[in-house]
Amino acid sequence: MTIRFGIAGTGWVAGEYVRSIEGHPDAEFGGMYSRQPQYAEGRLKEWGVQARLYGTFEEMAEDPAIDAIVLCSTPEVRPEQAIVASRRGKHLVIEKPVALERGSLAAMGEAIRSNGVKTVTSFVLRWNPLFETVKSLLKDDAIGHVFMAETDYWHDIGPRYVQYRWSSRKDLGGSSILSAGCHAVDALRYFAGEVEEVKAYSGRTSPASESGYEFDPNVMAIMKLRNGGIAKVSSSLECRTPYKMNIRLLGDKGTLLNNQLFSHKFPGQTDYATIPTILPDSGDVTHHPFAFEIADLITAIHSGGTTRCDFEDACRTMELCFAIDDSAASGETIRLPEVRK
């Protein structure tokens, strides 16, 4: 069965979704909604595809020819769009951040669960080859019990990026963690498990910083893991460094530093071994594995299964993101709720 996708939004990432959908044998790009229809027409020509342009999001959601909708619209409208689409039985690809506050996240969850739609959330690095390698190493006990974990998202997202015009705003970007650092938060959960409590701090690069961000672009959080270990996440959006997505895992049987491994699996090892793989080392969306994310959702629709990062899983990442922001704002240690079943 061919899955026909509609897309909400015309930004940088939308083009990658179009390419991923068009490149899958069981998928078809069926249409698009944008608040800027003339711009959307230009984007379709740029991508070299023909598709219907809908006058409203509701019109696209009500079209029986559309099976699934990709929500790469800006964050403030994403929850309502997810609710509208879910009530009409459309499966969902949900860009990050899933929502900007807890109330919207809860409303999305109620609509998604009530209507039984399949979901995949675009914490897209879960499909990156290094991430897959790390998960395999953990499963194979190459690292053992992770007692210390660190992840970093460092990306100088300034005015040269189109997304900056909205992601730098408090009402649209939310925070350093919500707008981009959530990738590091999700990676921490993905590799080290759930978090019990968090203490966070945020700040500017310097008192004279003129980056234009309406929130502190730099955040660091220290966490207690439910497995008894400790962890750290950092996010910096006005750093002076090439894009970095760092992963450091210390276990009782080995240590991982990005793609370097020291493990009990290699008893004669005297130094770290480098694993040749594709690293999450670029902020360019053309580098990100959207094709595998789309393929995962199509498989879930056909099989009745779940995706690698469905809405329920992503909710736990978002809850941790909210807790980090709450702690940074209040100065308090925040305890996370028990993990939902």
Rank of each mutant, 00 (worst) to 15 (best):
M1F: 14
M1P: 15
I3M: 07
G6S: 12
V13P: 05
A14M: 00
A14R: 00
A14S: 01
E16I: 03
S20I: 04
E22R: 11
P25R: 12
F29R: 02
G31Q: 07
R35Q: 14
Q36N: 14
Q38W: 12
E41K: 09
G42A: 02
R43H: 10
L44F: 08
L44H: 08
G48K: 03
G48S: 07
V49M: 07
Y54N: 02
T56V: 01
F57L: 02
A61G: 00
D63F: 02
A65H: 14
V70Q: 09
L71A: 04
L71K: 01
S73I: 02
P75Y: 10
E76H: 02
E80M: 07
A82L: 01
I83W: 05
R88S: 12
G89S: 00
P97Q: 03
P97Y: 01
V98A: 00
A99W: 05
A106E: 13
M108V: 00
S114N: 14
S114Y: 13
N115E: 00
K118Y: 01
T121L: 11
N128K: 06
N128H: 06
P129Y: 11
L138Y: 10
A142T: 14
I143C: 10
V146P: 03
M148K: 13
H155Y: 10
G158M: 03
P159T: 10
R160Q: 11
V162H: 08
W166H: 06
L172R: 09
I177M: 01
C182L: 13
H183V: 05
A184F: 02
Y190L: 07
F191E: 01
F191Y: 04
E194L: 08
E194R: 06
E197V: 00
K199N: 15
S202N: 11
S206A: 14
P207D: 14
A208G: 15
S211F: 15
Y213W: 11
E214D: 13
F215H: 14
V219T: 11
V219M: 09
M220E: 14
A221Y: 00
I222A: 04
K224W: 03
N227R: 00
K232Y: 06
S235R: 09
L237C: 05
R240M: 15
M245R: 15
I247V: 10
G251M: 04
G254L: 10
L256W: 13
L256Q: 12
F262L: 11
K265H: 15
K265W: 15
G268K: 11
Q269F: 08
I275A: 11
P280Y: 08
S282N: 06
D284Y: 02
T286N: 14
A291D: 14
E293K: 08
E293I: 07
L297D: 09
I301N: 05
R308H: 15
D310E: 05
F311A: 06
C321M: 03
D325G: 06
D325N: 08
A328D: 10
A329W: 13
G331A: 11
R335N: 04
E338N: 12
E338L: 09
R340P: 12
